[in-house]
Design a protein around this nucleic acid. Structure first.
Lengths: 330, 330
DNA sequence: CTGTTAGCGCCTTCAA
DNA sequence: TTGAAGGCGCTAACAG
C-alpha cells in the first residue's frame, strides 16, 4: 500500500506538504511543489488511508442508516432519500439491516458508535416494548455523549430528532374518506399489535369511525408484510371495506381476494397506506395515504446533521389518494 | 469519548491487558483482571474506536457494495442477499448508489479503497464503453494491488470474480417458449443499447428467433426503467408478443397498454425478465425469466472473500416462468 | 509557503 | 500472564 510518506519522498517534499496538497487542507502550497506532489501521487497510485485520517482528524465522513428490510420498498425509498442527501454532503453511507430484530438495531448503534460515524439514522417503526426501547435509548445516549448525532424516522420515542409520519391523522382521514363513500362495515388488517406504526394507523382509523358514529371495525392482527396481508384478508368477515395498514399488506390482501374470486372493488373495497411507487401500476390501483418517503429520508439526515439542540420532532402529513380499489356504496 | 487507556487506568491494568480482554485477542488474561477490565469498560461505556483498530491492524471489517439504484427491487434483492451473507461473516456494509453514472462507480471504488474495505462488490450491468470500463478496471486493479478483494454481479468485463446471469440463454429460452405458444411477430423493448445486460437479453432473444426461422422482431430502445417500458410500448407496432428486457419495464408496458385499452394477453402478450418478488402480485401475472437474485448477491460476496486467484466466473441460469401475461396463439 | 513534530487510539511484538 | 514501547498513516499546531 502506498502511503503519504512514499508520495512525499518521491516528490521530495515533507509529509506535511504532501498532506496539504492531497487531502483537502485550507492551506496553500506553491504551484511547483503542488504539481510535483500530485504527479508523485498519481504515479504511485496513492489513495489516502481514511482510517488514519479519521483517527487523526477525530471525525469521520460516514453516516449510518439502520433499516428493517431493504427489499421492502418502503425502506428502500426512505434509505434512498437519505443516501442522496448524504451524497450531496460528501458523506459515505453505511447501511445496516435488522430484519425487524430490535436487538440487531441496538447492536448496530453500538457498532456505528464504534465506527465513530458522524450521524446515525434509525429508520422504521419502534416496537412497544419499554425494555428494548430503553436499551436502545441508552445506546443512543452513549453515542451522543461522544458527540454523535442521531435522528429517526418513525415515532418520537428515542428522544432524538424525529421525522414522524402522521399515521393516526392519515388513517383517520382515510377512514373519513371511505365513510364518505358510503361504507359502514369495515375491517382493519392491523399488522402486529406491538409495532407502533401499525398500531397508530389502526387506532387512528378506529377512532375516526367512532367519531363518525359508525360501528367498530373488525381488527385482524398479523405480520406487517405481503403474506400477512394475504392471511389477514382471508379472515375478514362481511366488511365492505378493508383497510390494510400498509400498501404491501394491501397487495397481499388483493391477491387473496383475487384467488378466492372476490372482486375488488365490486365485492369489497381495499385501501392501504404509504403509496409505494413500485406498486403504483398495480391493478386495481390502490387507494392509499401518500407519504413523501424520499423527502422524509433526506429530511431525517438534515435534522441529524443540524444543530437543533432540543430534539426536533417534525410531523409529516399523509395525503389520501382515492383510486380504483375502493368504490362508492349506493 | 472514553478510550482504552481510560479503561485501563480505571481498572488498574496496562493498556495491553485491557486491549486483550476487550478486543478479541487470542491471548489469555487472568480471570480477576479480566473481570476488572470488563467492569471498568462497562462503567465507562467504552466503545472501541474502529478507525484506530483498522489502522493498527491494517485491515477493516467492512465491505462495500456499489449498486445503481436501491429503489429498484432488482438491486435491492441483490444487495440484500449480499448483506445477509456479510452479516453472517460479521462484516459491516457500506452501500453506494451510482444512479447509473459510471463515473460515480469509479469514484466509489476509489473511496472504498481509501476506506481499505475488505472487499467490494460491483452490482449491476456494465456499460459498453471501453474507456469507462478501462478506468474502472484500473481503479479496481489499484485496489486489488493493495490487497483488496473484489467481485461483481453482471458481466465478466472487469477481470474479477463474477456472478454472471445467463442473460442471452435466458432470453433465448424465453423466445423459444413464446414461439412455442404460436407467436411469430415479436417486439423487444430493449432498453439502452450501451447497457450490456439489456443488450445481451435483446441479442439472445433475437438470435433464438432467427434460429427458429421467425421474422426479426421490432427492437425499440429506451430507458431501462418503468417509464422506459411505458414509452417503448407505445411505439410497438403490430407484434402479438412483446418482450421487455426487465420486469420493471414490462410493468410500465402493461400500464401503457391498460391506458390505451389494449388487453393483455388477449390483444398482446407481454413478458419480462428477473421475476422481481415485489411484482409477483401484478395483474396480469408476468411471464418472465426468474433469477435467484438474493443467492447471486450472497454468492458474489463469497467469491470476493474467497481465495480463487484466477478470477472465477459463475454463470447463473434463469428459469422461464410462464404466467398469464402471455397467451397461446390459436 | 514549507518543514518538524507531536499525537489520534489501538495492536502487537518483545521482555519480564 | 502481564507490562512497556514502537508503530499503523495521517493531521495539525508550531516553527522557520
Amino acid at each position: 500500500m502506498v502511503t503519504l510518506e512514499d508520495v512525499a519522498r518521491q516528490a521530495g517534499v515533507s509529509l506535511a506538504t504532501a498532506s496539504r496538497v492531497l487531502n483537502g487542507s485550507t492551506r496553500q502550497v506553491g504551484a511547483a511543489l503542488r504539481a510535483r506532489v500530485e504527479q508523485a501521487a498519481d504515479e504511485l497510485g496513492y489513495r489516502a488511508n481514511i482510517a488514519a485520517q479519521t483517527l487523526a482528524r477525530g471525525a469521520s465522513n460516514v453516516i449510518g442508516i439502520v433499516v428493517h428490510d431493504l427489499t421492502d420498498p418502503y425502506f428502500a425509498a426512505l434509505a434512498d432519500g437519505a443516501m442522496r442527501a448524504a451524497a450531496t454532503e460528501g458523506l459515505l453511507v453505511m447501511v445496516g439491516t435488522t430484519h425487524r430484530d430490535p436487538e440487531q438495531e441496538i447492536a448496530y448503534v453500538a457498532t456505528l458508535n464504534a465506527q465513530r460515524v458522524r450521524a446515525v439514522l434509525l429508520v422504521g417503526s419502534r416496537v412497544a416494548d419499554p425494555a428494548v426501547t430503553g436499551r436502545l435509548r441508552d445506546e443512543l445516549a452513549r453515542y451522543q455523549a461522544g458527540g454523535g448525532r442521531a435522528a429517526c424516522v418513525g415515532q418520537d420515542l428515542l428522544g432524538v430528532d424525529t421525522v414522524a409520519p402522521a399515521n393516526r391523522q392519515g388513517a383517520a382521514e382515510l377512514a373519513r374518506a371511505l365513510a364518505g363513500l358510503g361504507h359502514t362495515r369495515f375491517a382493519v388488517l392491523a399488522g402486529p399489535p406491538h409495532l407502533v406504526t401499525a398500531a397508530d394507523r389502526c387506532a387512528g382509523f378506529v377512532e375516526a369511525l367512532e367519531e363518525l358514529g359508525l360501528p367498530a371495525p373488525q381488527v385482524i392482527h398479523g405480520p406487517f408484510d405481503r403474506d400477512g396481508g394475504y392471511a389477514a384478508a382471508s379472515q375478514a368477515g362481511d366488511a365492505t371495506c378493508v383497510f390494510a395498514v400498509n400498501d404491501v399488506m394491501a397487495v397481499g390482501a388483493l391477491a387473496a381476494y383475487r384467488e378466492r374470486g372476490v372482486r375488488v372493488p365490486d365485492d369489497v373495497s381495499v385501501a392501504g397506506f404509504d403509496d409505494i411507487v413500485t406498486l403504483r401500476d398495480h391493478v386495481p390501483a390502490l387507494t392509499t395515504v401518500r407519504l413523501p418517503l424520499k423527502d422524509m429520508g433526506a429530511r431525517a439526515l438534515e435534522l441529524a446533521l443540524g444543530e437543533g439542540d432540543p430534539a426536533v420532532v417534525e410531523q409529516v402529513a399523509g395525503e389520501v389518494v382515492l383510486r380504483e380499489s375502493v368504490r362508492r356504496m349506493t
